[in-house]
Computed example of a mutant assay.
Amino acid sequence: MNLKVPQNIYPLSRQSAIDQLEFVPGIWVNGKYYWMHNSSEKVIFEEELIIKVKLELIHSKIRFSSIYVSSHSVHPKEIKVLGMYYFSNVNQDHLAFISPTGKKIFHISKNNIFLVNAQFKGELLKEYTTVPVWSAYTDQIWSSVPAGTLKYQPMAKGPAASILAVKMTIHSRETCKLNSWAISGSNKNELLSMEQALLKNPLAFPFEK
């Protein structure tokens, strides 16, 4: 698939391209899932978990988020941190798809292409899906809610969302960190170059090799 998009022939909006792509973090634990709507912190009392999200200002074309999950339970927990990306204009016609060889997610909309990815302890994405926006917050994103397994759908057209899931074991009194980012550009090579530069950026990954 050719990932080059046409040049913009209209004046640029005051809103940058990357700001059009919304990010909503979430978590799956013990057969239930929770989304963080318009909030940078969420406490799940019944699971003794706290989720915090910090947005890092790294580059005008990059939205970089750090998700911290802290456990106050005395028992280890198997969880999945979730990340959903979709356009703020839900009427916007675009294509969201997964590149299985590159293990990345792409969104194409009009004059822009976006790369979406995440990293936990040096490991990049292994589980992801794309869905219509109207089913993004429902059980339809899962092949099994009790097991926390996303339904694999490699492509969605129209108002669509991409969802990633990263599995981790969190121990008592431990805090785990997941990094996720979206990058905007005009072609695939530009996006991949920017991502490589980001992964080498000590400000983005100060303690990770």
Rank of each mutant, 00 (worst) to 15 (best):
M1I: 11
N2P: 13
N8D: 10
N8Y: 05
R14F: 11
S16A: 09
D19Y: 05
L21H: 03
E22N: 13
F23C: 01
P25E: 08
Y33V: 12
H37A: 08
S39Q: 14
I44K: 03
E47G: 06
E48N: 09
I51K: 03
I51S: 03
K52Y: 04
K54R: 14
K54G: 03
E56H: 13
I58G: 00
S60W: 03
K61N: 15
I62M: 08
I67F: 02
Y68N: 10
V69E: 10
S73A: 10
K77D: 09
L82M: 10
L82Y: 06
M84K: 15
Y85P: 01
V90F: 03
D93A: 14
L95D: 13
F97A: 04
T101V: 13
G102P: 01
K103I: 07
F106M: 02
H107N: 11
N111P: 02
N112W: 12
F114Y: 15
F114A: 05
L115W: 12
V116S: 14
A118S: 13
A118D: 13
F120T: 01
K121H: 08
L124H: 11
T130Q: 01
T130S: 13
W134R: 04
S135M: 12
A136C: 11
Y137H: 14
Q140Y: 11
S143E: 14
V145D: 06
L150T: 06
K151C: 05
Q153K: 06
P154E: 07
A160L: 02
A160P: 01
S162Y: 00
I163Q: 03
M168T: 11
M168F: 05
M168L: 15
T175S: 10
K177V: 08
L178V: 15
N179R: 04
A182W: 00
S186D: 13
A197E: 11
A197S: 11
L198I: 05
N201H: 06
L203E: 13
E208L: 15
K209V: 05
